[in-house]
């Protein structure tokens, strides 16, 4: 453990870099939660498993089959997106009169199945993956910066740009927004809300997969990581105000930095507990999130 007095500028910068790196992942997971939540009101407990699937598939394609990274990236994202669609078609869509409890247990069941399948296919090992462009750290004002971190941040920026474009400038995106605001009204104006639900699972799974792909070179993926990634991502989603994806991005990065800083300044053993503790605190004190207004508290309904 480090004495507080010995914390230098470069240490703090290092925490921020580490924090932003994992924070981007939490942000992406949180965006995935929000998409499904906005379309259905469901919190998908299998969200973390999409990330694991993305990471492990990418490992197999690049390391075992030696496919080039761009091709593997696309193939993995597509495959996990298909898994998301399958989840919606076979487990959510057939449920005729769902209760909240039943939906929670169904998504938990899916998460157990994915985890079990991942364990069956990939075993219990952690998998290395080569960095996208070299693993030699760069020097950044005295702190070290992996090129992969730049890939992660860059990917997040691209996804956010695509997200903004999709929801503001495409017909499908606008229809999804309409469904999120008022599903009945959207249905009455001719929007196929069932298709929007399927699309939300597809996008959510795809974003989850991308998060898994870009983080695996740094954290080494294994089959059991889904639960913790999922719950931390949920923490970011709640902190940013559930359903609010721009809030989730800021909250995700904030959560990552807080976690990295407390790991560095207090103790790295308790690192995983920090994000969870923040999640509980937000749920107890301000469940509408730091950006949500307390008047718009429809979220407590669920």
């Amino acid at each position: 453990m480090m004495e507080p007095s010995s914390v230098s500028f470069s240490d703090i910068l290092q925490y921020i870099i580490m924090g932003v790196q994992s924070g981007c992942i939490y942000a992406l997971v949180a965006m995935g939660f929000n998409m499904i939540y906005n379309a259905t009101g469901i919190i998908n407990f299998a969200q973390g498993e999409f990330v694991v699937l993305g990471g492990l598939l990418m490992v197999s394609l690049t390391m075992t089959l030696n496919l080039p990274i761009p091709l593997s990236f696309a193939a993995t994202t597509l495959a996990v997106t298909a898994a998301g669609v399958a989840m919606e078609r076979f487990t959510i869509n057939p449920v005729k009169n769902p209760t909240v409890l039943r939906l929670i247990i169904i998504t938990i069941a899916v998460s157990i199945i994915v985890k079990g399948a991942a364990m069956g296919i990939w075993g219990k090992n952690s998998y290395f993956m080569r960095h996208f462009s070299g693993s030699e750290p760069l020097d950044f004002l005295g702190a070290s910066l992996l090129p992969q971190t730049l890939w992660i941040v860059g990917t997040l920026v691209l996804i956010v740009a695509a997200y903004i474009y999709f929801f503001n400038h495409t017909m499908t995106g606008k229809c999804m927004r309409a469904c999120a605001i008022n599903r009945d009204a959207a249905r009455l104006s001719g929007i196929n809300d069932r298709r929007m639900v399927m699309l939300s699972f597809a996008l959510s799974a795809g974003i989850g997969a991308i998060a898994g792909i870009i983080i695996t070179p740094i954290i080494q993926m294994d089959y059991a990581r889904g639960a913790l990634l999922g719950i931390k991502g949920f923490g970011a989603a709640v902190l940013g105000g559930l359903g609010n994806s721009m809030g989730a991005i800021i909250a995700g990065i904030l959560l990552g930095v807080l976690e990295a800083a407390s790991a560095g300044l207090i103790s790295s053993h308790y690192m995983d507990a920090i994000a969870l503790f923040i999640l509980l605190l937000v749920l107890f004190v301000r469940p509408s999130g730091i950006f949500g207004s307390s008047a718009a508290m429809r979220l407590k309904e669920f």
């Binding site: 469901i42 919190i43 407990f45 909240v100 409890l101 929670i104 639960a227 913790l228 719950i231 949920f234 923490g235 709640v238 995983d272 507990a273 969870l276 503790f277 999640l279 509980l280 749920l283 107890f284 469940p287 979220l299 407590k300 309904e301 669920f302």
Partner: peptide
Amino acid sequence: TLKLKGHYLAMATLGFASI
């Protein structure tokens, strides 16, 4: 925790168990 409902309650208790 028990002030929360449904999904929130599930996540909060899951968070507690993880901690």
